[in-house]
Design a binder for these strands. Sequence first.
DNA 1: GCACGTTATTCTCATTCAGAGAACTACTCG
DNA 2: CGAGTAGTTCTCTGAATGAGAATAACGTGC
Lengths: 247, 247
Amino acid sequence: MDESDFLAAYNPRAFDPMAVTADIVALTIRDGRLHVLLVRRGEPPFRGAWALPGGFVREDDLEEAAARELAEETSLSPADLDRVHLEQLGTYGKPGRDPRMRVVTVAYLAFAPWLPDPKAGSDADAAVWTPLTATRELAFDHAKILDDGLERARSKLEYTPLATSFVGEEFTISELRAVYDAVWEEQLHPGNFHRKVLSVPGFVESTGLTTERGGPRGGPRARLYRKGDAKYLHPALLRPSREDEIR
Amino acid sequence: MDESDFLAAYNPRAFDPMAVTADIVALTIRDGRLHVLLVRRGEPPFRGAWALPGGFVREDDLEEAAARELAEETSLSPADLDRVHLEQLGTYGKPGRDPRMRVVTVAYLAFAPWLPDPKAGSDADAAVWTPLTATRELAFDHAKILDDGLERARSKLEYTPLATSFVGEEFTISELRAVYDAVWEEQLHPGNFHRKVLSVPGFVESTGLTTERGGPRGGPRARLYRKGDAKYLHPALLRPSREDEIR
DNA sequence: GCACGTTATTCTCATTCAGAGAACTACTCG
DNA sequence: CGAGTAGTTCTCTGAATGAGAATAACGTGC
């Protein structure tokens, strides 16, 4: 066979090697604020600096590599990992972005519900959920990757039901609204939000239950919902007042 | 220095090498139909099969590599290349997708206005604009990449002014509508489309001119517009009737 | 137990937007 | 010149949105 001859003679080392890493922008919400998972690097380059969790891709698929790194950093059980939404964010391969060699990084974006505080992983001293307001200097071009991840997250809340990935299995409309408030950094109108969520087909479905108690500062018991079967929100739930970002 | 010692001792060949390619889903509109640029492979693997244009990433940036490949395949002048919108689509790295070795492909999506028929590039017998209706079997996982590119294109027309990348410098509202018709495969209402385009701030701006003649089958001269300064369409121009795709 | 502040939920009302259809007009073609 | 086509503008109707308010259920502190 022509083709198999070619493959036998093919030398995979003929090109400059490139390393491929999978890094993760993992977002969650704690205390009503958006947090990102950061690790402190235990090895050069950028030893001691904060960075996105990630690691080299070996034999596995890109997304598997990302899931593996995330599970390592957060000591997540497989069952927990199921509840985390993971999607590809983008790929960053500018020459010189890693001083060691040419590294192409495939970034993934993860939306997680509440998770316990992580333990340190293999190549990191520490991994912590960090509020976004306390932005730190990040290693490599991770600040740019984080920015891209935030913009993607903000945008995805508009036209997908992914906000439900940030809350528990059963949730109230107010908890869902808190997700939007945190990610968009805007206070949404409770009444209109309530109407909107219930009017979008497939966004949430009722469980028939309510919370056991009212809120910590009073108020009636809230009805509980679970995620519906919609893949897209239609009509979308648009961010208010983006006049400035439009041009 | 600790860090420079580390870098000096670092062996870039310690990992299995991975090749990185940049492949392109280049779309344009001809005769009112959406076309994609395909090449016929001149070398194994998949010799003789149709594939997306692309090639290995060498010293350059990923996007530069994509632009270089696109320019090669289409024999585009730098001035023409300026008018082509290029954005990253996604990265495909499943083990085994290339029989030669582990190949990670960063796919780019290009929107081009009318371009001349391409000549064959270096590693391809032929490159042709192919109507999407005549879908062929594609090499590797390029069918999936193409599908993802189409979905991205359809979606981007909704909330960005990228439809203007498919038409010339000056265009009529009807030409713009033809872009939407072709990409969405729907006949939009001419009156409502006209109202909508003119009412979205920054989508198009008037040139004050009109076409020299009416259409080939009659009708009045149309006013000419150029691209406005909006980065996003607000409110967006949503696809009609996606009820089926929502869940 | 009670007054009060808080919050879930529902309504109202005014405004904007989208879909359908049509009018009006300027053109090309035969 | 007459018929047909297409660019542009209007009208009408129903849906969606934003702002504000009403109602009612609950926790807290006295």
